[in-house]
Each structure stands twice: as structure tokens, then as C-alpha cells.
Design a protein around this nucleic acid. Sequence first.
DNA 1: ACATATAAGTACCAGGTGGTACGTAATGAC
DNA 2: GTCATTACGTACCACCTGGTACTTATATGT
Lengths: 199, 199
Amino acid sequence: MTSSKGATRRGRPITRNREHVVNTAMNAYWQDDNAAVSVNAICALAKVSKPSLYRDFGSEDGLTTAVLDRYAEAVLEPLKALLSSPSTFDAKLDAMIDFASQDSRMATGCLFVKMRATRSRFGPRTRSRIAAIEADTLEGYAHFFRESAVGGKKRYEIAADLAAAYLYEQMGLAVSQRASGKSPESVRELFALALSVLR
Amino acid sequence: MTSSKGATRRGRPITRNREHVVNTAMNAYWQDDNAAVSVNAICALAKVSKPSLYRDFGSEDGLTTAVLDRYAEAVLEPLKALLSSPSTFDAKLDAMIDFASQDSRMATGCLFVKMRATRSRFGPRTRSRIAAIEADTLEGYAHFFRESAVGGKKRYEIAADLAAAYLYEQMGLAVSQRASGKSPESVRELFALALSVLR
DNA sequence: ACATATAAGTACCAGGTGGTACGTAATGAC
DNA sequence: GTCATTACGTACCACCTGGTACTTATATGT
């Protein structure tokens, strides 16, 4: 679709594509305990030379930005969609608990939460993406609570913004616990206890 | 007290003492956003040459262990003592909230929590100290809840160990929020909401 | 005065980091 | 075939990391 016109491309054909590198890097950052994965390590994992990587992403900041965007699209968006599904308030909270404590995607934690925790390691572009995703998530949560307040079975006495911030922080805590190896059952127990104040 | 005997020490007198280096390093680790403070930076801050530091502590692991011990003694012990003070259950929880959200010692977060979050960066000795302090803290909290269950005004329906783990995690979350610059008021609000399930 | 003992710093080590200059390989256009 | 065009990787850069061999400064014992 990129070169459908008659003018065929000239020169050596490209062998490594961006997608492959982004996925490899995402998995590396995601899996690793520490968020200290070097570009050298990523090049070795993706079997791409460093200049190739730098031609595709410009800098480490560019790479981590691309990784974060990919993660947001692949994992965060589905989670966000979960909140606007047609189901009850309590069922949605239960779904959040399931997701954080049981879902295999959170087995090694949430990449966004990890990157947020070590954000000082990243460049300015990545940092601003992190801030943007945080704001977007908080707004999504606040919307969820506002909706529930008018349509739900019970009115909310605590402010939607407070509830949103609370859910956001507790969600981050729960996935951090999974990343540190805590058992899904323990995470579930603690997370459910924390969210019980919202019901 | 170290050389009270008649036999006076021979050789060049020592100029830099361990305490000074430990305090400097503790403040550096504590203050810094990232826990990535290099030994070079600490040497520069403490105005000590690298070999001197290595003679005193053996390795980076030795230094971080000493720092953690000093922090435990200076900050964690007073906090622990707070739980065994003669006051009511609710007052003690309030004191915890005050400490995490208002106390100036937590203005840049809790060094233990920071080191725990980045524990993969440290050597084996430091890591085992972190684990020991965690176990000790959890046991202290569990004891607190067990005591409250028998002598307090209300019995506990949730297990003391669960309550202890919950308090431990919420405490860590609250001080992390302070470390990341969140306002004391916001931290207090969220932390108080979290602890409300314990009352 | 001189030897001995101790503590301190200079100047280095190998290895890893993010990042790049430059030669080379593979294609289409002519 | 020859040439321009493009993608690619080798081999490097300066800088920083934790860690150390070796010299030098300053004290006491005799």
C-alpha cells in the first residue's frame, strides 16, 4: 500500500522493519525486573545493528516513545474499553480486579506503570507521553465514576476525581505487586479490599 | 573510647570518618529522584577519594547496606515505636496518616521504599537487608492489629496478617506519592480513604 | 634522625553506555 | 555493464561505571 504507484523503489531492499524492533523492545522492557534495558541489549535481541535502530527511531527516547505508544494501543486501550462496556458498576470494578490480579498480560506487571516509576530514566518525549497517558487514564476513570453516579444504582458521596485518583493509584499498586512476584491470590485479596471503599 | 589505653595509635591520623560518608550517601540516595546515585557522585559529595570509601565499606553493596541500616535506625525505628505508644487504635492510624502525608522526613519519600522499588540495582547484602526490614515491618504491623483485636474497642473480622500487608502496601504507596511530588493534602486524602477500610 | 605504621589520594583498569562516521552490499534505471 | 540510490553493519567515539595498584603524606616508636 505504501508504494502502489508505478515508480518502484530504488536501492537495497529493507530487511528489518520497525514493528519487529518495537515488539522486541517492548517485551524486553516489559519482562525485565529493572527497566534498565540498554539499546545494545535490544539490538542483540532484535538482531538489528545499532545504526539501523537509530535510523528508525533517532534516539533511545524515540524508541521508548514508540514502545510506549505500542503498549498503550495493545494493552491500555482494551482495558479502557472495558470501562465503557455495557455492564454494571460493580461488574466493572470486578473486571478491573480480575485484570490486575489474574490476567496473563499483567503477569510481569504493567509496562506503563514500570516506565512511570522509572520515568527519570527516559527522555523528554517519553516522559511527556507518560504524563499524557496518565492524564487520559485519570479522565477515563473520572468519566466512569461520573456516569455511574447519574445512571448507577447508588449515588457517589465522594468526588469522581478523588475516586478516579484512588482507582488509578490502587491499580498501579496491584500490578506492581504482580511484577514483584506476589501471588495473584494475594494481589486480588489486597486489591479487592482497597476497592471495597468505592462500592 | 576506641583508644583509651596507653598504646597510642601509630601512623597518619584519620581525617574522614564513616559516619560522614554514610550520612552524605543517605541524603543523596534519599533526595534523588532516581536511586541511580553513583559511588563517584557520593565521593564527590562527601569529598572523599574512592579508595577511602572502598576501604571503609568494601564495595558499593557495603555502602548501601550501611546507608540502609542508618536509615532504619534514624527513621524506621521511631515510626515503629509509634505503634507501641500508649494510645488508641484510631489515633495510631491517624498518626500513620500524619507521618506519611505531612511529616517532613517523608517530603522526598521513604528511602526504604525507594530502595525496595529498585532493589535489583543493589548487591546481595543490601537486598537481604531490605527483605529483613520488610519482614520485620510486616510483623510489627501484624502485632499491632493482633493487639488491637484483643484489647481494642472492636474486634477484627479481617485477619491481622492481611491487615498488616494492606497497611504496609498503602504506606508504601503514600510515601511514593510524596516522593513523586504529589501534594501532602492529596496524599492524605487518598491514604485516609484507603485506611478507612481498617476502621 | 630514622624506620615503621597507617591513611590518604592520583591515576589507572576493564567493561558498559548512548551514539555515529564510513565503507559495503544490493537493488533499479539507463 | 555501469551508475546512482538506498539499506545495512563494522568499528569506532567520548563518557561513565564499579573497583584497585601504587605513590605520597603524616603520624609514632626507638
